[in-house]
Design a protein around this nucleic acid. Sequence first.
DNA 1: CGTCCACGTCTAC
DNA 2: TAGACCTGGACGG
Length: 355
Amino acid sequence: MPEGPELHLASLFVNKMCAGVVFTGPVRKSEVSKSPDVPFTCDAYCITAASRGKEVKLTLTPMKSDGAKRGGKAGQADQPMDVVFRFGMSGFFRFTTEDELPKHAHLRFYSTEKPCRVLSFVDTRRFGSWQPDGTWQAGRGPCIMFEYKSFRENVVSHLSDRAFDRPICEVLLNQKFFNGIGNYLRAEILFRLNIPPFVPARTVLEGLESEDLSDRRVKNEITDAKTSDQAKKKVVKEEVGDLLRLCHTVPLEVVNLGGKGYDPEKADYSDFEAWLQCYYVDGMKSIRDHNGRTMWFKGDPGPMAPKDSKSPKAKKRAKKKDDHDYTDKKVLKQSNVFFFLACNKLYRLNISLIS
DNA sequence: CGTCCACGTCTAC
DNA sequence: TAGACCTGGACGG
């Protein structure tokens, strides 16, 4: 479930399902959870949500108790409280009746309805966490989806940072700069641009502008028969946008797939699966990066690929039968690093000529 | 039964 | 740069 798009879908889910719902009493935590208690209790409060990168913030807001018994009862909240969640590998929200509480519902908010319904933070593996009176985690960068301008500026203005010495695929998981990108998004984004995953990040990013020029760029449809393959590729890149723009648009595609995603139980998963072009896709290559995370890609891995790195299990087919693998033969195997770098230079040259 | 793998951080040598 | 932190599904014997 949880990369930037899923966290945002989770916030939409909460706002939709909890609109007009009144919650009451204490916030309850499972016995087994090691996350902190949420010291909030109130006879009547409402819940709203917002997301930023890979975090969701719930705001618990006490409702006006009209007459008001001045100061209210002891322990009753009269001020809003924010709770900031990270989802780990398996977190999500659900809204169910009390007797349909999912397994692993580790934090629960109870409505006044009869029968009572419960908003639950469900997290099977318990890698997720929450912080009462929380704020967006310091050190996480701007949201790739909803703070695009500052996200871009943050990357472009820090390219001398040692963090960018690493391969681009590993830097894309650095939440200080790419808050919201996770393992499937890095694969999909690099795949779209045919960027070898283990190219030094600075090489890929240097020369990109703080401002996204793609809107101003002329769509020069080059129909010249003499157009070289490289020039064609250059034009394609222009229409698509640069790497930083795709870090914004590709996650938004997932958000726009529909309000699905948020319920892993329901098998609306098929839309998402069909959307994936590279991650876990049959015929793609995969190797472990320097942090032991599986990088999915096509073609040349790039010069900084871990030397030893055994690719994790060739690929365990299952599920679907399919596998008429004519696709493999149609795939252009032409993307090596040098070809990529050459295109990249032509691309930037072209930008400067147009601007 | 067992091994491997998973959408992510964290902190400890 | 390892591990630690967890549960559970898929697959192998």
